[in-house]
Amino acid sequence: MSSLSRDDVAHLARLARIEMTDEELVNLASEFDVILNAVARVQEVATADVAPTSHPLPLRNVFRPDVVAPSLTPEEALSGAPASEENRFKVPQILGEEA
């Protein structure tokens, strides 16, 4: 019932921010036929009268006291950064040139 084309997969890859080669896109599209048909079985029993479960614990709005506790120093927080400058993360250009 379900199938995805190479272009469908390319669109999903763009949404997921993953560059993919043409070969990867074609392979994934062919694997998805099998996988989607297998997972679509959930629809056989998922009737309107069944409530969804998003999480095993019935928790909501868990709070702890708002107390200052030791946390990372700027050096520690930046220790894994690919690039940093003046105690900040240095990232590639986000806005266009004119901005």
Binding site: L12, L15, V39, A40, V42, Q43, V45, A46, T47, V50, A51, P52, T53, S54
Partner: peptide, 18 residues
Amino acid sequence: SSGYYDAYYGSAQKVRTL
């Protein structure tokens, strides 16, 4: 993704209840 959410993720959550 919108349009498929109910059919896939939503249905899977119901199976979780079952």
